[in-house]
Design a protein around this nucleic acid. Structure first.
Lengths: 334, 334
DNA sequence: GTATGATTCGAAACCGGTTCCATAGAACAA
DNA sequence: TTGTTCTATGGAACCGGTTTCGAATCATAC
């Protein structure tokens, strides 16, 4: 077995407390003793057992990240941001990947309870009131990324406003027949698509453009399903001249279909996405950039702050949205 | 603070050993005592402190996953596989994301040393001899995914063979002017591009097709750089009629450029990738599927086995490669 | 009634650190 | 010289579990 602090103490002819002081750079050790201890450590190739240290200090130096299965690039990008910010800290990251509501609830309960982690970061998984209450009561600080609850710290996106911005952009370009294509609006997870839809409706209303139910389509997530839905939208007698997609992946699916149908983008069809994933840049997609990477970093910052000193009122940070115009939207001709 | 096992013992009027027995389903507890303990646990809302348990059992129920920064979809896909397999076990996953060789070496050293994790999974980061030696000596089982070292367990891909398969496919289609586009062949990380290049060369040789140095180009990774490199290849006086890309992302970059230059794929240019990421399917890319997801799952399986009983000779599992023909390759006309 | 064995259970040791507290000795002041 | 303060240090308690070991209890056998 690996050597323990007692082995070091014996070898250096000192007490274990002294060894501990040396390890932790406690000043009150004479240079002589310190050297003796250091050489003993060297000779035994000793490293302190982190678990024992965790038990006695009460800190695990670990933060738990609860995230939906890495099915969507946006989760991955947020996670990258988390990773980036965490790398500069002394904390490690345990990944809890949730595939269904049961997983989610289990992780929520498990982590908020006992001292497995020092802090919790939750990505795109809004807790219900009871769960939020638990987190708030628990003594492990929790930060939500891309989700909101009044009781908890959060880094969030104004999806309604983003939806409005996207739609307004299309309207500004002269479009009035504007389609909306998204994931199912009723999801057990984060209803961001629904909020974006609300923004879409709001923009229409504000510009006195009547909402046409037939221009709205939603279904399963993913590029393939988006293609299919786009086919349906574009096969209408009077198809939309522009489509706002609930996220970038779906927007890219629409572009796929447009190419397949030889509908030229943006001259014959404008498409705008939402998220600002990397593929949006590669495909020259106009989109609403919600600063995914930054959201991860900000979440970590907030959590680290919370770990320093638990604030009383939960901090809330809203990330700015940015319309990034590329080559999939342009003024309507005629 | 949360209640401890002693609180429960006091409340139930039993010794702590008995409480421990109840928690761990040890049989030798009378039904009566067991019930008393269970109700005490219930009333106090007690859960055992996992850190304390870890210290006394010596197991952390955690496995460390060392992976390059999630820059490439292939790492993410492998990680998903790991996640899938791990979800069915009792283990958690700590993610160590490495951005540079220094990170890598630190993590290698740190994790192999002390009991922070019960096992280590290393993705696409081949250790050098000294490091492999460390891992082999250490008492924490280690499995390499997409990397090989004779001293360690591994799940691996035959990149040379894959490169050969891809090239042979193009040759079978009648191509002889076959380009090779990849990442820099000298990388501090995993030299898979180099192996694939070797396979390419091998296939050419075996078919008596002279290798033309000007048909080979390599540079920085990523779709954007691939586009630029593709432009160079395709601007040649006698451009290749087919290109084998070192990975799918680069193949997609080539497709981007082809579209930009209005070179029709596959009629004017065949393109084959390597990896089998999801986007390959979406873009109808012919590729060599190396079963990324499965590699993650297999790595976990192997590691779990190793955790059960440390085998003496390191297990090696080679994943089959599969040519998936889609719509970016076709017989050369004329 | 005593010997034997099985069952149930608690005290205490242990895992490997950190930290409180008491003390020895040095340094300094009067 | 004596008293006081400060520094360096070790012993022991502690974190919260698991596990060993021995003892108490009970049933059964003789």
């Amino acid at each position: 077995m690996s050597p323990t602090i007692r082995d070091v103490a014996k070898k250096a002819n000192v007490g274990i407390a002294t060894v501990s002081r040396v390890i932790n750079n406690n000043t009150s050790v004479s240079a002589e003793t310190r050297n003796a201890v250091l050489t003993a450590i060297e000779e035994l190739d000793y490293t302190p057992n982190p678990i024992a240290r965790q038990l006695s200090t009460g800190r695990t130096l670990t933060i738990g990240v609860i995230v939906p299965n890495l099915t969507s690039p946006s989760y991955v990008e947020r996670l990258r941001g988390v990773q980036t910010a965490l790398a500069e800290s002394e904390y490690h990251m345990v990944l809890y990947s949730v595939g269904n509501p049961v997983d989610r609830d289990n992780y929520f309960k498990e982590l908020s309870r006992n001292g497995l982690v020092d802090g919790i970061l939750i990505i795109s998984l809004p807790p219900n009131d009871a769960q939020a209450e638990r987190f708030a009561q628990s003594d492990v600080p929790t930060v939500l990324i891309d989700a909101y609850h009044e009781q908890l710290c959060s880094v969030l996106t104004d999806d309604v406003k983003g939806g409005e911005m996207a739609t307004q952009h299309l309207i500004d370009l002269g479009h009035t027949k504007i389609g909306f294509l998204s994931e199912t609006l009723e999801t057990p997870f984060h209803p961001s698509s629904y909020y974006r839809y609300q923004g879409y409706r709001k923009a229409l209303t504000e510009n006195n453009i009547p909402f046409d139910e037939t221009y709205r389509i939603s279904g399963a997530s993913g590029r393939m399903h988006a293609r299919e839905m786009a086919r349906q939208l574009l096969a209408m007698q009077i198809p939309p001249s522009a489509i706002f997609a609930g996220n970038d992946i779906q927007a890219i699916g629409i572009l796929d279909t447009a190419r397949e149908l030889q509908i030229e983008v943006p001259s014959e069809l404008s498409v705008i996405g939402f998220d600002g994933i990397r593929d949006a840049e590669y495909t020259n997609l106009t989109t609403i950039d919600q600063h995914l990477h930054e959201s991860g970093e900000e979440g970590v910052k907030m959590l680290l702050q919370e770990l320093e000193s638990l604030s009383d009122s939960p901090a809330q940070k809203r990330l700015a949205l940015k319309l990034v115009q590329r080559n999939t939207t342009r003024p309507l001709i005629g």
